[in-house]
Design a protein around this nucleic acid. Structure first.
Length: 302
DNA sequence: ATCCAGGGGTCAC
DNA sequence: GTGACCCATGGA
């Protein structure tokens, strides 16, 4: 019998409750399930589909494998997965030093202490999600994602609950536009998602191909070559999936609203001021973006 | 009804 | 390369 509990030591400046709160926010994400002190998630691994739960135990994150394979290799995979998901390997000290120097954002060091940039390690999922989320409100975007995942993805049932897994490219590659249209995808979004799925299915587009490119600009350019992927989408994916610090989602309405709200810009069009702001946060552009997004959400009083 | 929402494509200049 | 315009669809 293999060990079904995995422990990962938590780094300094890490807050599981803050991360958990972000995962839950005010939205209905079909790809994980959050309780008061744990998150459940089902994923496809090279060793088969797995359902696991992450909670905090002392100075460790504890992963419990609830369903699916539990082998030493799979446990290692899950450990790396959670480590990446919560961005646990990063030292936030330099970022917090920047924040403290910035009177407009210094409060974040305390208010959002230990919040990590939660990733989407599956690049295909990140791409589909960012295409779905283009130019619509997030509540609606999560609804569309749920419909698509429930229709095309596998799932694990455990204790009378269903845990969804994001669909494989090969499955979405064969999805019909008409079906996606019924899920309230626009014609264009349906085309974009299917197009990206086909690119993944036939190997035209893959994580390893993007990874092999020399730098951020080359990766961004390669992504934008696909229909439906613009700068915003490419950078969002490079932020969430590749953790490129330069992956600023330029033009993002939430980001612009937060910049205005913090008095960093007066109006949305101030490109030079925005550029200067991010230059000051070099190396931490996506982190400060993530914290600015965080600032938009009102944390309910517990 | 009107404006907005974690944009993208196209086409003129 | 930049800007104007159109597209698309539900939420508030």
């Amino acid at each position: 019998m293999h060990q079904q509990t995995i422990l990962i030591p938590t780094p300094p400046l890490f807050s599981f409750p803050e991360c958990l709160w972000f995962l839950n926010r005010n939205y209905d994400d079909c790809l994980h399930f959050v309780t008061e002190n744990a998150v459940f998630k089902a994923i496809a691994t090279p060793y088969g589909d797995v359902l696991f739960r992450v909670s905090e135990q002392g100075n460790f994150l504890k992963i419990d494998v609830l369903d699916g394979v539990s082998s030493p290799a799979c446990n290692d995979y899950l450990m790396a997965y959670v480590n990446e998901w919560f961005d646990m390997g990063r030292d936030l000290t330099p970022f917090y030093t920047h924040l403290k120097r910035d009177s407009r954002l210094a409060y974040m060091v305390e208010d959002f202490a230990g919040l990590r940039l939660m990733g989407i390690s599956d690049m295909f999922e990140a791409l589909c999600w960012s295409i779905i989320g283009q130019q619509i409100n997030l509540t609606f975007a999560y609804k569309m994602k749920r419909r698509m995942v429930e229709r095309y993805g596998r799932h694990i049932e455990w204790e009378n609950q269903v845990f969804h897994i994001f669909p494989e490219p090969a499955v979405l590659a064969n999805a019909e536009i008409a079906v996606l249209r019924e899920m309230q995808f626009s014609q264009k979004k349906a085309e974009y998602v299917i197009g990206v799925a086909r690119a993944f299915a036939d190997g035209t587009l893959s994580r390893s191909k993007i990874d092999a490119l020399p730098d951020f600009e080359a990766r961004q350019k390669a992504l934008i070559a696909h229909k439906g992927i613009g700068v915003w989408t490419a950078n969002y994916v490079l932020m969430k999936s590749f953790r490129a610090p330069e992956g600023i989602p330029h033009g993002d309405v939430g980001l612009l609203n937060a910049l205005v709200g913090h008095g960093i810009i007066a109006e949305r069009g101030e490109k030079d001021t925005i550029e200067a702001f991010f230059r000051d946060y070099a190396g931490w552009e996506t982190y400060v973006t993530f914290y600015l997004w965080r600032s938009l959400a009102v944390k309910p009083l517990v």
